[in-house]
C-alpha cells in the first residue's frame, strides 16, 4: 500500500517575521482533578462519589463497547481503579481521564485474554426497520453512518480490532499508546486499525440504505 505524502505546514507566501507553527498550547495541569483525588485519598466519601460520577461515563462507555459483560466489567474496572488511583501523576502529561482510559483498557485486554469462550456475534442486518432507502450515494453514506448503525457495526468487529477503533477514533488515544497496552507492535496496531476500518466499511456498505440500481 502506498502511504500518503508527508503532511506539510509549508506556507505558500511566508510573510515577514511569521512563525508558521500554530499549535494550541497544551492545557496545564487539571487542578480540579488533583484536588478531587486528594479528597478521595483522604477518604472523603463525597469525593469518591464525585470521582465515580466524573469518570464513570468514560469507564462505562469503554466497558459497554469493548466487553461482552459490561456490567461485570464496570465493577471490575472500579475494583481495579481504586487501589491504583495513587499511581496517577497529576504532573504528567496525561489527564486523569486519559490515565483512566489506559488503565481500563489494560483491564479489558486482560479480561479478553482470560475468557476461554469468546462470544459469537451474529451477523444479521444492522437496521432495516426504517424505510430510508435512497438513490443518492452521498445520502446513503450519511445514513449508513447513522449512530445506531455504526454502533451495531462496531459490535461485529473482533474485540482486538474493536478496541483499537474505539480507543483511537472515539477516545482519541494515540496508536503508540494503544499498541503498548495491547502488547503489540505499533505497525501491527496500525494494520489492525486499517483492517478494522475496512471491515466496518464493508459491513456498513453491505447494509447501506441504498436502492439497488436497476
Amino acid at each position: 500500500m502506498r502511504g500518503r505524502p508527508p503532511t506539510s505546514q509549508f506556507p505558500r507566501n511566508p510573510p515577514h517575521h511569521r512563525c508558521v507553527y500554530n499549535h494550541t498550547p497544551r492545557p496545564g495541569i487539571r487542578v480540579s482533578e488533583t484536588a478531587l483525588l486528594r479528597a478521595v485519598h483522604r477518604g472523603d466519601p463525597t469525593a469518591r462519589a464525585q470521582l465515580v460520577k466524573q469518570l464513570g461515563p468514560r469507564v462505562w462507555a469503554l466497558c459497554t463497547r469493548l466487553d461482552p459483560e459490561p456490567e461485570d466489567a464496570y465493577q471490575a474496572a472500579w475494583a481495579h481503579l481504586w487501589p491504583r488511583l495513587h499511581r496517577f501523576d497529576p504532573t504528567g502529561t496525561a489527564s486523569l481521564s486519559t490515565w483512566t482510559t489506559t488503565v481500563v483498557h489494560r483491564l479489558l485486554v486482560d479480561r479478553h485474554r482470560r475468557r476461554s469462550v469468546r462470544p459469537f456475534v451474529p451477523g444479521g442486518p444492522l437496521d432495516d426497520t426504517l424505510d430510508t432507502r435512497t438513490d443518492d450515494p452521498e445520502t446513503a453514506t450519511a445514513r449508513a453512518l447513522d449512530r445506531s448503525r455504526l454502533t451495531a457495526a462496531l459490535d461485529r468487529l473482533p474485540e482486538p480490532q474493536r478496541r483499537i477503533v474505539v480507543l483511537h477514533h472515539i477516545h482519541g488515544m494515540p496508536l503508540a499508546d494503544i499498541a503498548r497496552t495491547e502488547g503489540i507492535a505499533a505497525g501491527t496496531c496500525k494494520s489492525r486499525l486499517h483492517r478494522a476500518r475496512a471491515r466496518l466499511a464493508e459491513v456498513l456498505a453491505a447494509h447501506a440504505p441504498l436502492r439497488k440500481a436497476r
Binding site: 461515563p57 468514560r58 459497554t64 455504526l150 477514533h169
Partner: peptide, 18 residues
C-alpha cells in the same frame, strides 16, 4: 463510507452514562 468513518466514529460519544 471508509473515508467518512473516522469523522463518524469521532462523533460517537466518548462517555456514556452508566
Amino acid at each position: 463510507i471508509e473515508d467518512a468513518l473516522p469523522e463518524a466514529l469521532a462523533a460517537l460519544p466518548a462517555d456514556l452514562p452508566p
